[in-house]
Design a protein around this nucleic acid. Structure first.
Lengths: 207, 207
DNA sequence: TAGATTGTTAATCGATTAACAATC
DNA sequence: TAGATTGTTAATCGATTAACAATC
């Protein structure tokens, strides 16, 4: 079974392949992809074998074909809509992040409890939390990004899950756990910075 | 040697301890911390032993003392300044993210190449890229967050590293690798969403 | 003292890597 | 054909967990 790290590597291979396509490459070897993704060639072939992706002994993989297969595995062959809960600093940035659209990911709406944030006319619209359930249902949305304060995070998580959301990316600085059948990934900016600080200090002290 | 996962767990223990301090807890057991951080009790004790942190057999750990030790390991006993390169959607959000200040992390300035973004009077100021080297030197800054477009990321990385930065958190959608002596952690929003999509689909197909 | 929890060692688990036969 | 690369198995590595003697 593929785990999180494996799927992240698949995304990297996919991104590398897109760049190769732009350069009109037709074939690629596991060695090339390994370099691009910062892993070993054995890892690349092992990852592919997990998904039944085969190449050509001696001839490597066809760029176009391989990209298609990875795109299908990663769900890139269809549009995915998500919502953003909490339109503060981070939430607002995500609402308008141009990188999503480029990759077939679409922000359907933002939600907040503060009426001052509402803006149903903007693109994407910012709506009251009360309208969340309806939008999720009519548009069949499965993904949410949480960018609310820590004290609200757990409650909001339960709200979106009960409304039908299956996957959550959480930016609130508190580690949320997913109930079975759902997936919650946490991005904690403070923790990331602490991590950098630790390893910088460790490197200095080793000298 | 402690690895990234271990240090991330340490941050979680530290956050849990801060909450316990607020509740006036005096002692805590490895079991409690394990629950709070979503790991096993053995993992907690193993992590502590890596850093020579000892408790009291039968009596667990003193909350205050343990928090101090973790804070020291994570460098929370001193103020850390960092800079943000690229004042677009994400960069602007990070410049004003209130979570950093609360945790002893301080944004010294933002930098951009677009003169329309400059604002030396704002708090924090937004400055031309040319002033980056000087600020890093006079304030002895070691941390940078990159929030620039993908095509600029590699070049900007080299710029900040040659200016003396030791740790980088990269939001550009391209996987940057760190030369020896430096550390680069990548946060790729698109990849995170793809990850959610994959596991949601996998769960659906299993049914 | 008796009972509970630590600190650490040994066992387990899973992921990565090395190696090489198959084969294009 | 000869040579290079895949696909896969076995070996290695490292991290997590279980277990338990030490001890507060």
């Amino acid at each position: 079974m593929a785990n999180r790290s494996c799927i992240i590597r698949l995304s990297r291979y996919k991104n590398a392949l897109n760049r190769l396509k732009g350069l009109n490459f037709v074939r690629v070897f596991s060695d090339n992809l390994a370099d691009a993704a910062g892993v070993t060639a054995a890892q690349v072939r092992k990852d592919f074998s997990l998904f039944g992706i085969t190449g050509n002994r001696r001839g490597g993989y066809k760029v176009e074909e391989l990209a298609d297969q990875l795109n299908r595995i990663l769900g890139k062959n269809q549009l995915h809509e998500f919502i953003v809960i909490g339109v503060g600093n981070i939430g607002r940035a995500l609402l308008h992040y141009p990188g999503f659209e480029r990759s077939g990911i679409d922000v359907a709406a933002g939600f907040d409890i503060d009426p001052a944030k509402y803006n149903p006319q903007s693109q994407p619209p910012v709506l009251p939390l009360e309208q969340l359930g309806e939008l999720i249902k009519t548009r069949d949305i499965k993904l949410a990004i949480l960018a609310v304060p820590d004290y609200a995070a757990q409650q909001v998580l339960e709200l979106v899950l009960s409304a039908g959301i299956k996957g959550v990316l959480n930016f609130a600085p508190i580690c949320l756990k997913a109930p079975p059948g759902c997936i919650v990934n946490n991005i904690n900016l403070e923790t990331e910075i602490e991590n950098l600080i630790y390893f910088i200090n460790a490197a200095e002290n080793r000298k």
